[in-house]
Design a protein around this nucleic acid. Structure first.
Lengths: 171, 171
DNA sequence: CCCAAATATGTAGTGATATAACCTATACGA
DNA sequence: TCGTATAGGTTATATCACTACATATTTGGG
């Protein structure tokens, strides 16, 4: 059991936050935040990168790189895979998107302000939906374990697989 | 850098255990355990599956599927990738091996007796070595978060990235 | 403003990972 | 021992990701 009162008592549910970026108002807000963040950093959120981010934000589920190719190319000429990968690299590097290694899929960061802290993804093995959470309890525990083993932590994403509430009884 | 278990497994660390299956005695023991486990379950640890497991056990680092193809085929005819993948499927299904999604790599389960409990892997982003640990603290925290979000837990592997003690100062 | 350097994108090809489809061989129980 | 289930062989292909190099665009210094 991990005790981190200073972090936990401020938040309900031990501080796990969830977000719903694919709803259009929220997505607009996310784009605005991303633009602000890039401006502040001198990073260039070009039209291509912005479109990739928009498509990711518009999807409730993580998308594969070639899914993105398809969706981005629906209007006009098909985009080369490498172009999408480059845009994804940019977005990930600046904390605007994440890669789910266990699914070879990408999703928009739902809360840009958290930056590159340790976040966790709950991934439903049935429907594939992913919920991004920032849980101090998880972060603290992970940090502690890393420290114990002499590892220098690198803020990365934790992928936790389960079966979401809507998929409990299926199959 | 390889750490000797005798130095680490008694750290005051909330009970996180590490293992060193690639040392031959330990590997032999692991094979014996695996055989016993398969017999008990009526699962067939065939020669191919056993060889794949042995190669995994003999490696201090996770191996890619095609690494396995190379190592297994060094004597005699090259094994088809699908054959290795099928063996890996078997081993993973029975808790004898794990897949590290973040690296597209596979490693032997270092403690067969823990079965399919929640285990965690500390993966060094520099040298690629992976340390399997079973940490009650991590398991509890993850379970709690899953429960909060209405997820039904599925015992899976957690991949935690960092930089191991031996790679702190490099690059 | 113009040019040079840095950054971003286009284009073609390839490497790396994983599986499909179909068939044959072997093991196991009735 | 025969039939079924499981394992493995063979060929081809799907899927994911990147290399190498050319071109275009942006940006800052003169």
């Amino acid at each position: 059991m991990v005790h981190t009162p200073s972090l936990q008592h401020r938040l309900p549910n031990e501080g796990a936050h969830i977000h719903a970026p694919w709803r259009s108002e929220t997505a607009k807000q996310a784009i605005a935040q991303s633009e602000a963040l890039c401006r502040a950093k001198g990073a260039r959120l070009t039209p291509i990168r912005r479109r990739v981010l928009e498509v990711l934000l518009a999807s409730p589920k993580p998308l594969g790189a070639y899914d993105l190719v398809d969706r981005l190319g629906s209007q006009g000429r098909r985009m080369a895979p490498i172009t999408v990968y480059r845009a994804l690299d940019f977005l990930i590097e600046h904390g605007l998107a994440h890669r789910l290694a266990s699914r070879n899929a990408y999703l928009a960061s739902s809360d840009v302000s958290t930056g590159r802290q340790t976040t966790a993804f709950l991934i439903c093995e049935s429907c594939g939906e992913a919920t991004e959470i920032t849980s101090p309890a998880v972060a603290d525990t992970v940090l502690k374990v890393l420290k114990e083993q002499g590892y220098q932590p690198r803020a990365r994403a934790l992928e936790i697989t389960g079966r979401c509430a809507g998929c409990q009884d299926i199959h």
